[in-house]
Computed example of a mutant assay.
Amino acid sequence: MMKRGTQVAPALFAIFMLSACSASYNEKVRHLEEVAQRGVEVHKIIEDLEGEEADEEQCREASRVLNKDHPHIEKKDREAWHELVEGVFVSACISGRY
């Protein structure tokens, strides 16, 4: 099992690399934590409703629907930011942890 810090550390590094973005570092970290928590919640919902573990396809679709809010990110960094957000969500959704 991965601990919370193990999955969040790569995300924090990616935030650092996107430092030219308009949102502050703390706003980005807070947003990624919220996204990860949503992923955990979706994992539980899928498990309760379908009686099985969430798969990557279900989690990616849920991410597209649920993660439309985001801090202000400069246009040139948006694609990388959206990939990061989806990756954090999907990881938490599949594992049920962040």
Score class of each variant (00 low, 15 high):
10 P>E: 03
58 Q>C: 05
24 S>L: 12
52 E>V: 15
81 W>H: 03
92 A>V: 01
89 F>Q: 02
12 L>G: 05
87 G>D: 04
37 Q>Y: 05
3 K>T: 06
52 E>K: 15
69 D>W: 08
58 Q>L: 09
68 K>H: 09
6 T>Q: 09
78 R>Q: 14
30 R>C: 06
29 V>Q: 07
8 V>E: 10
57 E>V: 08
41 E>I: 00
28 K>I: 03
97 R>Y: 12
53 E>P: 15
43 H>I: 00
18 L>D: 02
78 R>V: 13
38 R>T: 01
16 F>E: 11
73 I>V: 14
73 I>W: 02
75 K>E: 14
90 V>G: 05
66 L>Q: 08
61 E>V: 09
90 V>C: 02
49 L>C: 00
84 L>V: 00
86 E>Y: 04
50 E>P: 00
70 H>F: 05
26 N>S: 14
76 K>D: 13
2 M>C: 10
46 I>K: 06
12 L>N: 09
93 C>W: 11
25 Y>S: 06
9 A>Q: 13
8 V>T: 01
55 D>I: 08
65 V>L: 11
68 K>C: 07
51 G>C: 10
47 E>P: 07
95 S>G: 13
29 V>E: 07
48 D>R: 08
28 K>Y: 01
81 W>S: 03
82 H>M: 09
47 E>Y: 10
75 K>Y: 14
34 E>H: 01
41 E>Q: 07
17 M>Y: 01
39 G>Q: 05
68 K>T: 15
70 H>K: 14
36 A>C: 05
52 E>T: 15
95 S>L: 12
16 F>H: 10
55 D>W: 13
20 A>C: 10
82 H>Q: 12
82 H>K: 12
89 F>I: 04
32 L>C: 04
50 E>R: 08
79 E>L: 11
88 V>I: 07
87 G>W: 02
95 S>A: 13
87 G>M: 02
35 V>E: 02
40 V>K: 07
64 R>D: 02
64 R>N: 05
31 H>D: 04
55 D>E: 14
9 A>E: 12
74 E>Y: 10
40 V>S: 07
53 E>F: 15
42 V>K: 05
89 F>W: 04
44 K>T: 08
70 H>Y: 09
45 I>S: 11
36 A>E: 01
23 A>S: 15
46 I>C: 06
41 E>F: 00
24 S>R: 12
57 E>H: 13
46 I>S: 07
73 I>E: 01
25 Y>G: 04
75 K>D: 15
8 V>S: 09
75 K>H: 15
47 E>D: 07
